[in-house]
Amino acid sequence: MRIFGHKPTITAWIGIVIVAGFLVIGIFAPWIAPYPEDRTFDDVGSYAPPSATMWLGTDQIGRDLLSRVIYGARTTIGIAFLTTVLSFAIGIVTGLWAVVGGKIVDQILSRLVDVMLSIPLLIFALIVLSLFGSLFQSVIGSLTVLICVIAVLDSTRVFRLSRSVAMNIVVLEYVEAARLRGEGTWWIIRREILPNALPPMISEFGLRFCFNFLFVAALSFLGLGVQPPLADWGGMVKENAKALGVGGMAPLWPAAAIALMTIGVNLIVDWILSINARPSGASAEM
């Protein structure tokens, strides 16, 4: 089988299987999960060890951990995906605007992004979410706030990349030829720049997804991301952290799910990047 006109390597196949598996689990969660995500089993109690009916045991208030991990796939992957899509939309639009909008627009946007990137993303998110969340969550819902905040912050990196990719394209002769022909700005963006700018950004989408995915998980783990009772992997790790003290492994399962999903995406991205990479000149002598 060929994807993007190339045969995936073994590691790429592993990545594809992992990611596809999680996507299926996430999409069909209600049909796959043995129990509803919020049903508590008082008779079993909290932090029950794995059993035949509950393969991963129960969580801190006696809910089935496996079901929660399955439902969590939907929330965690879904949020990260939406965030990345939004972040790319914002980043690409502003990035292209900086390139074609003239020197002043470019300077303002670029300096703003420079300053924003001088604040670690997590720190910036903590600062903004500390107030923003409580201001708006009653109006548009805390999940929307979370997605928008992360997307805006993350779009700074997409901005940088799309700007530099577009900058390299805009100086090429075929774009100049379009200007000499008398084409309008919009036509140049749509027909000359975008089709050439998007392919190099495919692998970046994977990397940004991984980053946002881990980022949402970290925020939830710190108690500032997805709020209970919604099942989400980062939050579940936090909720179940105390199980370790009594010898349970409850927090390790959702955490492992996060790691596995990220590895899967990274394996695919690694393969996409390696398609175009050539051995370095000196490799023959090494």
């Binding site: 090429l172 002769e173 075929y174 030829a177 000499l180 022909r181 008398g182 027909r191 000359e192 089709p195 050439n196």
Partner: peptide, 20 residues
């Protein structure tokens, strides 16, 4: 004016949009 003066570039590789 633009139509009446045309231009041919040195590097044919970058003078044509590779996606068209």
């Amino acid at each position: 004016d633009l139509r009446r003066i045309q231009f041919i570039y040195q590097q044919p590789d970058v003078a044509l949009n590779p996606r068209q």
